[in-house]
Amino acid sequence: MADFSWNTQSPLERALVPGHHGVTGTQVGVMLEEVRDINLVQVMARRGKVVETVKAAKKVFGVEPPSTPGTAAGRHATLIWSGPDQFIAFSARSERDHFSKLSDAFAGVASLSDQSDGRCLIRIGGPRARQALSKFCSLDLDDRAFPPGAAATTSIDHTATNIWRGADSSDGHAVFHILVFTSFADSLWHTIQDAALEYGVQASLAHTA
């Protein structure tokens, strides 16, 4: 009988080559990172249970989940709008029973799905991030249309994604987060990196705190 051993590995194991890419020299227009060790839980209110779901979320995270495209900073988690009456709870990977604790908190009012290993999180920052994004993302990412805390579900390169804008970096540049299905992560990473090469790309790995 064959022995199987299962190793978790990033879908960007091959695509992400840490270091500088693109234009010669040291110019970095775009910082491209994969964020590992994430917890993602999709929460969808059951039919007619929106009020109860909001109440349960408030109890667990200390904030109400966003009711329009956007994010809400809660206790140990960021709540990201992902459609009407649903959101994604994003947090740093922590204790093993994280999901079952949330399941208990939303029992009977919302349906939960653990997406921690189902999605890949890519973070894009730097002075030219917006120019690179505009080559493959059809959203208006200008400050007025997409300020910090804005979120959207949209198709990027024919792939379903969740995109949101976090807090600006210390040097004042916008930082965008993109969640993509793991099976499409490799392809999307190449699309993003190719789009950013002319500005100079710094690719790296990041871990949630």
Partner: peptide, 9 residues
């Protein structure tokens, strides 16, 4: 929204 979108009945 079409009837039944989201968690609406």
């Amino acid at each position: 929204a079409a009837p039944g979108a989201g968690a609406a009945s």
